[in-house]
């Protein structure tokens, strides 16, 4: 039986693009779902996200039982998890967008605004380097498409899996065990992005 990939539908916008990209990367069975029961039976879980941290966290919290199901399956059963863009930022303890909002708190840290300067534009928009740290899971060095105004500042540097540069180092990915979050958009990063999704679909944990 084909593996079941749950793609969480909580009104966060880029769902169809992620769905199309997972299909192109070879996912055989993708459930686009807002049903906690489907999440509890999933073999892999993808949390997309665009827009504001608070709106996304609000959308996720508004699905009865969804956060509990995610925590049971990801933190408890340790199935492979991928968060994309705001779906990655939600892993933090809190976001500082429009006041302070609680995040999932799976990976310690804060999501803070990026500072524009005379030469650094915000949003950080476009293709930039992805430089994995030694031992980072799934991430290969390359160029990916970023589109964000806030960035993940990890409490423990050991959770940072890759960095990019936008005036100063910016977290491009965080990882801990079976959890991977990427700030960039693999679904919009052509061959590099599809490669990452393919590796995620093949990810087997020790």
């Amino acid at each position: 039986m084909a593996e079941r990939v749950a793609l969480i539908d909580y009104g966060a916008g880029n769902l169809h693009s992620v769905h199309n990209a997972l299909k192109a990367a070879g996912a055989a069975s993708i459930a686009v779902t807002d049903d906690p029961a489907v999440v509890r039976a999933a073999d892999r879980i993808v949390l997309p996200g665009v827009g504001a941290f608070a709106a996304c966290m609000g959308g996720l919290s508004a699905l009865p039982g969804m956060i509990d199901a995610l925590e049971a399956r990801v933190l408890g059963d340790k199935v492979p998890f991928l968060g994309i863009c705001v779906g990655m930022q939600l892993l933090a303890d809190r976001g500082l967008e429009h006041g302070t909002q609680q995040g999932l708190g799976w990976i310690g840290g804060e999501v803070r605004p990026m500072e524009a300067t005379a030469t650094i534009k915000v949003p950080h928009m476009g293709w930039n380097d992805v430089a994995p740290v030694a031992g980072a899971p799934l991430i290969e060095p390359g160029e990916a498409y970023f589109l964000h105004s806030y960035h993940f500042v990890a409490a423990d540097g050991a959770d940072v899996a890759a960095v990019t540069d936008h005036g100063s180092p910016v977290t491009a990915a965080v990882a801990r065990g079976n959890i991977l979050g990427v700030q960039f958009h693999p679904e919009k990063s052509q061959a590099y992005g599809l490669g990452l999704l393919r590796r995620f679909l093949d990810w087997t944990l020790p």
């Binding site: 950080h124 928009m125 476009g126 293709w127 930039n128 380097d129 160029e143 540069d165 936008h166 005036g167």
Partner: peptide, 8 residues
């Protein structure tokens, strides 16, 4: 390198 100039 920094963020790339986008060609659209």
């Amino acid at each position: 390198m920094s963020v790339r100039v986008r060609v659209i």
